[in-house]
Design a protein around this nucleic acid. Structure first.
Length: 290
DNA sequence: CCCCAGGTCGTCA
DNA sequence: TGACGACATGGG
């Protein structure tokens, strides 16, 4: 993978198993929008990025090789060998179908605080509305970045949210989750090392620590571990996995405990990624929204 | 007007 | 432990 700088833009040979549309719409990221020219634009890790797939090239606009190597390579999981990983997961017909359907899905490595808040909001909520609330949160409390086309906003830091009241959170649509968010803000901004320490813990310890925040249960903690900390073995047990085990695999009486055990047994170290393929496939197979 | 959404919390056996 | 209703909000 050798990037070529052309004027301000970085051109990269399109990686195998990589599709921007799938990456941004599979329910892991709520911060990128598709533009009329087919490019995607959004803010991640505090920076604006616009990028586009064109034939066999991936173009990162206004990006240099340094930024690519230090930030975007890891963000887009281009340091992960999806060919090998997919082969390991390809063990049964339903999974094979999901892999084929989601040929371009990769698990992004996103900002930890952003994932904590985003998936705190995700509970008992639907994907379009999660995106709407996250956008409102950024517009209200993030830092503006002016581009040629529009004004974008960074995801607000714990510090930027430290003095926001529950009422204000409610007013942007958080509903009963507003108090959960103030608790999360209090926990993280009251302990400068909270986030830093989290990433150094074992998966089990980190999950426990996350769950001490009110409103973060097992499933939300799992999403945070998977989407921000590259704990690929963690398979979030949501309504979809349950449905997939029951309907597609024909296993009845799935409890949370049973779901985790099955995922571990079937997909092992990549159970979380397997879940994402199945989730994406099932959502598009059965649903019309989103 | 009822049902649902990438769940979690508090409560009561 | 395990089941069950409540929870804000908006869209179908």
């Amino acid at each position: 993978m050798k990037p070529i700088q052309i004027k301000n833009d970085l051109h990269i040979a399109l990686p195998d198993y990589f599709d921007l549309e799938q990456i941004f719409t599979c329910g892991q990221n709520f911060r990128f929008d598709r533009k009329n020219d087919g490019s995607y634009c959004g803010v991640a890790l505090g920076q604006v990025l616009r990028l586009k797939q064109q034939d066999n090239t991936l173009i990162l606009y206004d990006t240099d090789e340094k930024a690519f190597e230090e930030i975007w390579m890891s963000y887009f999981a281009l340091d992960i060998d999806y060919g090998t990983l997919r082969k390991q997961l390809d063990t049964d017909p339903p999974m094979r179908r999901a892999l084929a359907y989601g040929y371009g899905i990769r698990i992004l490595k996103q900002d930890l605080w952003e994932m904590i808040v985003t998936f705190l909001i995700s509970q008992n909520n639907n994907i379009p509305r999660i995106k709407k609330i996250v956008t409102a949160l950024c517009t209200a409390f993030g830092s503006p970045i002016v581009t040629e086309q529009e004004i974008l906003y960074t995801f607000p830091t714990p510090r930027q949210l430290a003095f926001v009241t529950e009422i204000e959170f409610q007013s942007i649509g958080l509903g009963y989750r507003a108090s959960y968010l103030t608790d999360a803000v209090r926990t993280v901004s009251g302990d400068d090392l909270f986030l830093q320490q989290l990433v150094s813990l074992t998966t089990c310890e980190a999950r426990e620590k996350l769950m001490r925040i009110k409103g973060i249960g097992g499933k939300v903690a799992d999403c945070i571990l998977l989407f921000a900390m590259a704990r690929y073995e963690v398979c979030p047990h949501d309504v979809w996995v349950k449905r997939i085990f029951e309907n597609t695999y024909g296993i009845t009486g799935i409890t949370e405990k049973k779901g985790y055990a099955l995922a571990e047994e079937k997909w092992g170290e990549y159970a979380g990624i397997a879940q994402q393929f199945l989730f994406h496939y099932e959502r598009h197979r059965t649903d019309t929204n989103g």
